[in-house]
Design a protein around this nucleic acid. Structure first.
Lengths: 159, 159
DNA sequence: ATAAAACCTCAACATTAGTTGAGGTCAATA
DNA sequence: TATTGACCTCAACTAATGTTGAGGTTTTAT
């Protein structure tokens, strides 16, 4: 049993400390709490006190956000986890594998868009019916299709 | 000189026609006009009348949006073009090349994120200072860095 | 000529992800 | 103990991207 000084044995963090360490604003932590993404204990005087595990939780939230996942979805994914203990490696693996898939889809979609953008630079088409750029579904489903000639009787804008 | 019937010689489109052909809502066309992304002529009775070139303009807007570019930026890119004549292939090339670059950057950033996500699944780290996932700058600049051990004296959340 | 469909403006609302500020309380330090 | 910095709640605000609706006008078709 080690005897530690007060500042060292304090297991809980104030909202300001969490803000500083996690790099998000205090108001954002309030906001996340209101949205059910994080939870706090309260001091006798009603101030937020966080277990250190909240730092990893916030880290996970921020990483997930960068993948393009909306907060509501992150919240849903996080609620299946207990919020009173730190994430285990298994928890993290489950979360990140699911997000990994979504991220892959987003990447694939953007790459398809990029490739069509490239191939359409020369043709300047963008015909609603013909150009693979014009339909989000097409972007994934018509991977093999190259640029097409635009239907000049429709929507080309040329007199 | 061909003599065409009224319905065929009409060079201008109503807002409803543009909405139907471009696949965006009438309210969105109003909105785009208010934001300076498109422009309309008006009939004697003050109704919007569009040259057919607006269809390509809307197409470009929608494509640009899918690459993740905000409307304000699209608007800025489009204002360098005349809005009273159709886009030429050169116009489109200039636009799409610039957006192609941004798209590439977004893709690279998401791929870096994905790769770190993968490598961090095993380690479960996410330490603010150590994990490359925690800093957006790191994601691009620390490409070679693998997962690191977390500094257990900080922010691990373990008792 | 009249009715229906489409159009007009303007204001308000919706959603996501927060930020700001007012008015008041708590906690740590001198 | 007094003060100062950190904290509290709640409401209002921001910004982007639109949508909805009320109240009124125009165009088109019969």
């Amino acid at each position: 049993m080690t005897i530690v000084r007060n500042s060292e044995m304090r297991r809980e963090l104030t909202v300001g400390e969490v803000a500083e360490r996690s790099g998000v604003a205090v108001s954002t932590l309030h906001f996340y709490e209101a949205k059910g993404l994080i939870r706090s204990n309260r001091s006798r005087g009603n101030q937020r006190r966080y277990p250190r595990s909240v730092l990893r939780r916030v880290a996970v939230i921020k990483v997930a956000q960068r993948t393009g996942i909306p907060l509501a979805e992150i919240q849903a994914a996080l609620t299946v986890l207990p919020d009173d203990r730190p994430l285990t490696v298994q928890d993290w693996a489950r979360l990140s594998e699911s997000w990994h898939e979504q991220l892959n889809e987003r990447i694939a979609s953007l790459m398809a868009l990029r490739d069509h953008l490239t191939s359409c630079i020369g043709c300047g088409c963008l015909s609603l019916r013909e150009c693979p750029l014009r339909n989000p579904h097409d972007v994934l489903s018509m991977e093999g299709a190259g640029p097409r000639l635009m239907d000049a009787t429709e929507e080309d804008g040329q007199p």
